[in-house]
Amino acid sequence: MRLTVRTAVPGFTTARPPPPRPEGMDMPIDAARAVAAEPRTAELAWDHKDVLLYHLGVGAGRPATDAEELRYTLESRLQVLPSFSTVAGGAMALAGGLAAPGIEVDLATVLHGGQRIELHRPIPVTGRATAIGRVEAVHDKGKAAVIVLRSDVHDDEGPLWSASTRIFVRGEGGFGGERGPSDRLEAPEREPDRTVERATREDQALLYRLCGDWNPLHADPEFAELAGFDRPILHGLCSYGIVLKAVVDAALGGDATRVRAYSTRFAGILFPGETMRIRMWNEGEGRIQVLATSVERDHAPVLADTLIEHT
């Protein structure tokens, strides 16, 4: 198996069309082989400094002395946002997850399509755990493939969280596989129960990338221009964390341990310095549906099909 990488950075997002495939070249994805491959195991470790940095990366600490913010920024009061699971111990290395038997893709054609986490219990402030990852499914969307990566994480006390990452690979469909399910959620036709706005800093991406995603798309203007953007964009998983924090603070009494699951589709981009408008609908039975958009760009979608399940 060969993994063709045109950038050494995981999760590369680009607006360019995929390169043409030479005539007669076999499709690079063998779905049956990928799904049947042996799971990969990785050891994860983190402490309060990693948690604090992540929280700052998703906008915590404003105002710095606010008691409600100190639960994210002061080690003596610290709770852990469940979305920290996407970076804990380097868990965001998508390139490693894509380097499975049966998969040969160019990371320049890869988009992070969606993310879901399920919490089995609250994430501890300091931890050591084992992640077991595998390719759960490969869907054929015709002009693209969707690779679903599954990761189950446990420590000495038992299961901690499970994560499902959907990777959209442009130009790699047509291999004869199943299309897979649709996860689209129609926005409720009533006014949201809550609406909040969260401004991001101009240096938000520079701070968040210290959590482990070094993709120059989020820092280097020249690289961003090559990818089709007029300036660097914010990490999708940073927007993911900002939205979860907003929902925890506005709808769950600031208690991050109430979150049981969180799923989203990355529907668009956010530029650092822009403001997200986050609309929330209480759907009953411990479900909050969310839509996040960019205020400055006429409410262009950022996160869609977003659902938070809670106690």
Rank of each mutant, 00 (worst) to 15 (best):
G158L: 11
F168P: 02
R150F: 04
R184E: 13
G158N: 05
D230M: 09
G273E: 08
E191M: 03
L206M: 08
E157D: 14
D213A: 05
I269D: 03
R201Y: 06
A145Q: 10
G158A: 10
F223E: 12
C238R: 09
L149R: 04
E197A: 12
F271Y: 15
A267T: 03
D220H: 04
V153R: 04
V247H: 05
R260F: 01
L252M: 14
A227V: 04
L207E: 04
I269V: 15
M276V: 09
L217T: 07
P192H: 05
D203P: 09
D183A: 15
D255A: 01
T200V: 04
R184H: 13
F223S: 05
P221E: 10
K245R: 15
A261F: 10
G253F: 00
A224K: 05
E222P: 02
G173Y: 10
L237P: 11
F223V: 13
A163V: 08
R194C: 03
A256R: 09
A227G: 13
R179M: 02
I233N: 03
G176W: 15
E189A: 14
R170H: 13
S263R: 15
A219P: 06
E197I: 09
R166L: 06
R231D: 05
G268P: 02
G177R: 09
A251W: 13
A205W: 09
D249F: 01
R194G: 00
G268D: 12
G176L: 07
D230Y: 11
W161L: 07
K245M: 14
I233Q: 09
D255I: 00
D249R: 03
R209V: 12
V153K: 04
A250R: 13
A187H: 02
T195F: 01
R265I: 08
R170M: 11
A224L: 10
I242T: 13
H154D: 12
K245W: 01
L185F: 03
E186K: 10
V148H: 00
R190D: 07
